[in-house]
Simulated assay, not measured.
Amino acid sequence: MAGVNKNIVILISGSGSNMAAIVESSVKQGWQARFNARVSAVISNKAGAQGLAWAEEQGIATRALAHTRFASREAFDAALMTEIDRFEPVLVVLAGFMRILTPGFVQHYEGRLVNIHPSLLPAFTGLNTHQRAIDMGCRFAGATVHRVTSELDHGDILDQAVVPVLPDDTAETLAARVLTQEHVIYPRAVERLLAAG
């Protein structure tokens, strides 16, 4: 198995800051030498996603597949699977990929699909997590890396980070504080998965 690259495909919709954190960590931590693993492709559902330009600058293969061109969610996911499968990935990493995936897609990558969610799951699945945490009077918030299952924001928890909710926090200030921790725990969780084989 030593000669076979363990490819990682990252899916993004925007700036790709978590994607960049994973790529930078993979270089700094020597994933290629240690695990024979590398981020081989970054795919976005938006052609103008900033993260694609950054990935290209790093010499990573990029693809843009606009979901708006497809008649159904299933049709888009089928085309997306075709693009991903070209790279024969050991892991498919969702990094700010703002699409709800079909059960067929999730099943196809079962055990290889991971996501990061900006809350301490199982609390606050779905959207507007930071405002909801503030509105509920939470003293702590955070982020969770988890395996993806057909149930939204469920699946085995791989890593979590906790941050305080400050008295004067807005959704924006809390989101920024959580994001700094996402950049720590997401690369760490991916590295652990690679180390576990």
Score class of each variant (00 low, 15 high):
Thr129His: 01
Val23Phe: 01
Met136Cys: 14
Gln32Glu: 13
Gln32His: 11
Met98Gly: 07
Arg139Tyr: 11
Met136Asp: 14
Val39Gln: 03
Thr68Pro: 00
Pro118Gly: 10
Thr102Val: 11
Pro103Phe: 07
Phe87Asp: 15
Thr82His: 14
Glu74Phe: 08
Thr82Ala: 15
Asp85Met: 14
Asp77Asn: 08
Glu74Ile: 08
Thr144Asp: 13
Ile84Gln: 12
Val145Arg: 07
Leu113Ile: 05
Ser72Ala: 08
Ala37His: 08
Val92Lys: 10
Asp85Lys: 15
Gln107His: 15
Asn115Ser: 11
Leu91Pro: 07
Gln29Trp: 13
Ala143Lys: 04
Val90Thr: 14
Ala64Glu: 06
Gln32Asn: 03
Gly96Val: 05
Phe140Glu: 09
Gln131Met: 05
Gly142Trp: 07
Arg99Asn: 03
Phe140Val: 15
Gly16Lys: 05
Glu74Pro: 04
Arg147Ser: 03
Arg69Pro: 02
Arg63Lys: 07
Pro118Lys: 03
Glu57Thr: 11
His130Met: 12
Arg86Ala: 15
Ala33Asp: 10
Gly137Tyr: 14
Leu101Trp: 04
Gly30Trp: 00
Met98Gln: 06
Gln131Tyr: 01
Thr68Gln: 05
Trp54Pro: 00
Asn115Ile: 12
Ile116Met: 12
Ser44Asn: 08
Pro89Trp: 12
Val114Thr: 13
Gln131Leu: 09
Phe140Ala: 13
Ala41Asn: 09
Ala37Cys: 11
Ala41Glu: 03
Leu120Pro: 00
Leu127Val: 15
Thr68Arg: 15
Lys46Phe: 14
Gly51Ile: 07
Lys46Glu: 08
Arg63Met: 04
